[in-house]
């Protein structure tokens, strides 16, 4: 669901439907009764491949020791502007 123009789509919930068209209609009825969104995407659950939380440590490890990717890693000398 895109809540408002300019925001990214965010997962809001699940539902049952026989096909994509009815899934959209059901999603509108179930998740936008109070104008919560301006756009809906529906995806069959079976089409989603998920990384398991159990794999989290190993799977996301490569990013753990690269603190230099964050700007806060660097020391900026006093007085430098626009950096």
């Amino acid at each position: 669901m895109r809540a408002r123009r300019g925001l990214s789509h965010t997962h809001v919930g699940s539902l049952h439907a026989p096909d994509a068209e009815l899934a959209l209609r059901n999603a509108r009825d179930l998740y936008t009764r109070r104008q919560e969104g301006v756009s809906i995407w529906v995806v069959p659950a079976g089409a989603i491949t998920a990384s398991s939380p159990d794999e989290k440590d190993a799977f996301f490890d490569p990013a753990a020791d690269k603190v230099y990717r964050h700007p806060t890693f660097y020391e900026v000398p006093d007085g430098v502007a626009h950096l």
Binding site: A3, R34, E36
Partner: peptide, 8 residues
């Protein structure tokens, strides 16, 4: 607006 658990 009610029920939006996705507002900024």
């Amino acid at each position: 607006m009610y029920g939006n658990d996705f507002s900024a």
